[in-house]
Amino acid sequence: MEDLVVRAEGLRKRFGETQALDSVDLAMRRGTVLGVLGPNGAGKTTAVRVLATLLRPDEGTAFVAGVDVLKHPDQVRRKIGLTGQYASVDEDLTGTQNLVLIGRLLDMPGRDAKRRAVELLEWFGLQEAAGRPAKTYSGGMRRRLDLAASLVGHPEVIFLDEPTTGLDPAKREDMWGVVRSQVTRGASVLLTTQYLEEADALADEIVVVDHGRVIAHDTPDGLKRRVGGQTLKVRPADPERLPDVLRVLDAVAAPGTTAAKDEAAGSRPGTASVPVTSDAALADAVAQMRAEGVEVTELALHLPSLDEVFHTLTGRTRTEAPV
């Protein structure tokens, strides 16, 4: 049997008129990252709150690190770290005080709690702000402190609820680095996100949820194949070379597709795009264009947006009500 560190079956939770979870199954292998992808209101946060023992489901079972979440929540709490969607640091406490408090609540002796706090603050680049109240922190710093707080006890399983929402791209990459380092340390990470790009960058497997249901569970590559993969977009420096670009792109196109000029309303003319199935297509295209002497000013590999993912998986746009 697989070593599943998170295993949930048939989770249901209702808030008044809203069925937040409608029979959700989740499985995460030890030492991996599971990305839970979905729009606002899909049930991601509710699922995380159930797994992190904050919320009892109406129905269903859940095991985290081998422990029954409903029967032994206290044992589960010894093994998890949680970073909620809203930074749950105490604004009046300094960075150090926030982390020392968590350490003390995890039964660390005072000196160990202090040492762990210093270590984490340094690791998250917050040592200079360590003595300042968290309310003086920027949004990105607060997120990092929040994440640090969930790592104080070296948790076996880490839950991150939209850890990068509202962060600028550079800060987002920093956060991704932290997640990867935790997996290297041996932890397992379940993170929710609204960005396929993020799930693709971090997750070993992706679960797509919508209206409280799991509508897909796949590897990032498998998911990208199903939703039409990625789009390679190229802008030659000389618009006259566009036909050459089209020929190069056709050679790397996904089976059954061809390259085309971008003529959609709103996009600047002079670019060509092609659906591709692998990241290697980008390198192939670059090499071929260099060989032909085509100078390029714009080159990008786009993942499908969440909207496109949903459209493909459900056959409808997100704003439509389920039939």
Partner: peptide, 13 residues
């Protein structure tokens, strides 16, 4: 309302 208590709830206390 602020979420600080969510963290306390997720701790083994």
């Amino acid at each position: 309302e602020k979420g600080v208590f969510d963290r306390f709830r997720s701790l083994p206390i």
